[in-house]
Design a protein around this nucleic acid. Structure first.
Lengths: 219, 219
DNA sequence: GTCTATAACCGGATAGAC
DNA sequence: GTCTATCCGGTTATAGAC
């Protein structure tokens, strides 16, 4: 698995799979077709990827890395929470757009709590932590004033928010996913306002009780 | 399908399926095993249910009817929004509890936008409308004062909220699903407070802009 | 130990006879 | 409305090449 040739074969299989998924969707792509396009035997594809579902996990990794690469230079500068979050969320939608048509199948396997692909599972903790770290960068580099207790929880909360947006996006049938972009704009503005509101002098006790509820419900 | 005998066979297949799902989970139950327990041929099971997934849709219908039957007498009386919503949500969790172990598989098919089983799809509109109607009863019978514009949207919003709770419940590994019940209690209280807050004199414009955002994002 | 290939197995789904 | 026979594709076992 560490050989150069092996790495190439692995890449070839993943490329073939993603291309076919985009061309004809997840369900209509057979493992036999993937193997054929990658010019390997069927059994060989299973040497590199435990199952058809695991190709999805690899896809996850790819788009996350791509998203990260786009965001990092932009996040190096500072800005308001609203600006930074908006930028990251738009970049996310841009990154995953080419895969919208098979995103349903993707989410299908991801939704199963028994699946290691489910974003809340222990198995996907590393990927999740990485994604949460991105939101921590968003928060930490923001010029907006944020109460310390909220600031600590915010990255995790924003990650959950971002999963919600993706759920909406999956079901979004509007051209160019215009509705998703619009929803991001509006919800980011709302979040920005809520964070500002939470910082007001009288909000301390309400904020504490809401944060406690969130902490308690964390699984 | 309308014959008495046919109806009996159909019921027998569904009963066998649900029993097996509970005993050994969705994935570990084969259509062959279902057919065998129901004492019909494999092909015959497909005469009544288009696919294995469609057995889940039937399950949906059953638990919804059961939930409705529990709620209706209780909702005949009036009460605060908080009391009524809490009651309906608790009853929901009670109703679906026996199926928790295969709820993952359930959600798996439901999450696919291409599937007619997905709760947001056109195909499941009738079931969804029925469920939303239940929340309309909750709202309409409540003694709590609610602004008219919010009141109109609230049933739909509460249905979406209830889907979110189910998503949480699916991933809930605490004994007796204690965390889910606790989350329901806390979020219902929060909703009650927000609705009260939205009714205050100065909140009109904020409420309108939030409601507009929600209306616009509806798919 | 790293990689490739072939031949099954298993279960969801379908065709078509009765 | 019910059955049998069959297809199809994800997955696995296993033999062996480098």
């Amino acid at each position: 698995m560490t050989t150069v040739r092996g790495e190439l074969t692995r890449t070839r299989i993943l490329d073939a799979a993603l291309a076919l998924f985009r061309e004809r969707g997840y369900d209509n792509t057979t493992m036999r077709a993937i193997a054929e396009r990658a010019q390997v035997a069927l059994g060989n594809a299973y040497y590199y990827f435990e199952s058809k579902d695991h190709l999805i996990q690899a896809f996850y990794g790819r788009t996350h890395d791509e998203h990260l690469a786009v965001c990092q230079p932009l996040l190096a500068e500072t800005g308001s929470l609203r600006e930074r979050l908006l930028m990251v969320m738009r970049a996310k939608l841009d990154t995953i757009e080419p895969y919208h048509q098979f995103a349903g199948a993707l989410f299908k396997t991801a939704a199963d709590p028994a699946s290691p692909l489910n974003p809340f599972s222990d198995a996907s903790r590393p990927v999740r932590e990485e994604a949460i770290a991105l939101f921590r960068t968003v928060v930490d580099g923001a010029t907006t004033k944020i109460p310390a207790d909220l600031r600590a929880e915010l990255p995790q909360l924003l990650w959950t928010y971002h999963m919600g947006i993706i759920l909406y996006w999956i079901h979004d049938r509007s051209t160019g996913r215009a509705k998703s972009y619009r929803l991001v704009e509006q919800t980011v503005m709302l979040i920005d306002r809520l964070v500002a509101l939470a910082g007001l002098p009288l909000m301390g006790s309400i904020r504490a009780s809401v944060l406690e509820m969130i902490a308690e419900s964390q699984q």
